[in-house]
Design a protein around this nucleic acid. Structure first.
Length: 193
DNA sequence: GAGTAACC
DNA sequence: CGGG
């Protein structure tokens, strides 16, 4: 796992996120057993990550609008590819970007990103807005995680042996980011298929 | 199941 | 009160 501190440009990404959210609005998804995910989500790219009563999966259409997910902006692709290369994974070509929006007090429990086809492909994660404590666990869910502070513009690359580590986000503390206001956004670039 | 809560 |  490689952390590139203050590596992405938050202002550029904010404008792109706003444009994407007009086409595919942020929404709260549910888990199979009726729980609600604490972060609002949307996606861009050829497919998008979806969770509902039927489970977790990638869908090529947005269930909310019935339309294709918005195309991934070129600047997203360039960012993900250069960050991956910097971390030792050249040639990364993500086909989806999951965008998570955390309001104050929202977090995400320990989980692993396991719905993609090829775990040899890394995941590039970009933090924006309010800071947060990122939890890095082990290969088993019961392993006790350690904490990493993440700030706006930080980029984390999960690849190789780190690709399937359990991870999570502690509830976001109240604050006001100059660009993003009272929110934390997270972009995760994946090769789903 | 990326959920919460109760209980020890 | 924190962890299991």
């Amino acid at each position: 796992m490689v952390l590139l501190r203050r590596w992405a440009d938050p202002a550029t990404l904010l404008a792109l996120i706003q444009a994407l959210a007009e086409q595919a609005p942020f929404r709260f998804m549910t888990t199979r057993r009726g729980g609600k995910l604490a972060a609002a989500m949307t996606s861009a790219g050829a497919s998008g990550w979806v969770s509902d009563a039927r489970g977790y999966r990638y869908e090529s259409r947005d269930p909310l609008t019935g339309q294709s997910w918005p195309a991934m902006p070129d600047a997203f692709l360039v960012l993900a590819d250069t960050a991956a290369a910097e971390a030792g994974f050249p040639g990364f070509a993500p086909d989806t970007c999951l965008i998570n929006r955390y309001a104050v007090r929202a977090g995400m429990g320990l989980h692993r990103d396991g719905d993609e086809r090829d775990f040899d492909q890394p995941i590039v994660s970009v933090s924006l807005g309010l800071p947060a404590v990122f939890l890095v666990g082990g290969m088993e869910k019961d392993e006790k995680p350690f904490s990493v502070g993440l700030e706006s513009g930080d980029v984390l690359v999960f690849g190789g042996p780190a690709r399937l580590l359990f991870h999570g986000i502690r509830p976001v503390k109240p604050g006001d980011d100059p660009l993003f206001g009272p929110f934390r956004y997270n972009l995760t670039f994946r090769r789903a298929r």
